[in-house]
Amino acid sequence: MLKGIILVFLGACSFGILSTFVKLAYHEGYTLGDVTGAQAFFGAVILWVLFFIQSKTSTYRAKEIKIITPWWKMIMAGTCTGLVSIFYYQCVKLVPNSVAIILLMQFIWMSILLEFLIFKKKPSGLQLGAVLLVLGGTVLASGMLETSISALNLKGIGFGLLAALCYAGFLMLSGRIGNEYPTLKKSALMITGACILIFIIFPPAFLFNGALAGSLLKWGLIISVFGTVIPPLFYAEGVPKIGTALSSILSAAELPVAVMMAGFVLQEQVSFLRWMGVAIILSAMILPNLKYLKRKA
């Protein structure tokens, strides 16, 4: 279980780093289609290359793998990650970054609610307490209290909530289907699904218009590694070990990392109130693990 906790936590941290690089890519004039397409395309290529390398090893060949979930279901499930990218990056364009982050963080309660509605799995008291702390800390850490109401955009809020819902769906599906697949193959299939969906919505003009000769190649590789390779790999391995509810709480690590990156890399002013929110979120992630940590002590 401890391994699963660490993997999900690191996956969330990687996803938190992502938004800073996306913002830098936007500053250089690249579009939503460029960023999401490059992320999914390079991510799928990297994951498939890693899988084929792994499949040639003697250790992999020695394992007898019984596949139960059809490959096309994995690809369909992967569309959730493509939708997260599309909706979230569009949200960032329409509302302040701090508001976009708090909207995405709503996946925490959405994922627990989905588990309850679909699988009748009731959250524990510790999990409910952690969710309340995460939501309260998110309001502070995102800077929403310091953001003017007039700066809000209803379309942006809608895209942010859709991104949160898709993220919750991704967490739920990642932990419940295709767990018999090797982690690399499972991640590669899911990202392939995301890539197909994004290419349908945004035809991959960047592959032919010379954009890759510029800095899009650099940003595409960076964003794909931190947003498409590391999180799905770590989630595919970690979520089945600890469950969707705990994974959703640990995934809140994305916000503190995003705040720190904004302060250190983008040189944005991060107030004491926002750092207080970061501290509350970090403590909330520890809360549901207290019973497990005491048992290990």
Rank of each mutant, 00 (worst) to 15 (best):
L132W: 06
N209R: 05
A62W: 05
G125T: 15
T244M: 06
L135A: 07
A151Q: 13
A211I: 03
M105H: 02
V35P: 01
P96I: 04
I68H: 07
F234G: 02
Q39C: 12
I118C: 03
R295H: 11
F21V: 05
A205I: 06
I191F: 07
I242L: 06
P231V: 02
G169Y: 07
A253P: 06
K291S: 13
E237R: 13
G175A: 15
V99E: 04
A194Q: 06
K155V: 10
L216S: 05
L126F: 14
F51T: 08
A284T: 04
S55I: 09
K218S: 13
G43D: 08
G263F: 10
L255N: 00
L184K: 13
M105K: 00
G214P: 02
K66M: 06
L94S: 06
Y292H: 05
E146L: 08
E115T: 05
P203L: 03
F234Y: 10
L10C: 14
A279N: 01
P203K: 02
A236F: 11
I191D: 04
A258L: 11
N289E: 13
L128H: 01
A279D: 00
S58P: 07
T59D: 10
V35M: 08
V49T: 13
G33R: 02
F234V: 04
I102Y: 00
L104A: 01
L197G: 00
A62Q: 15
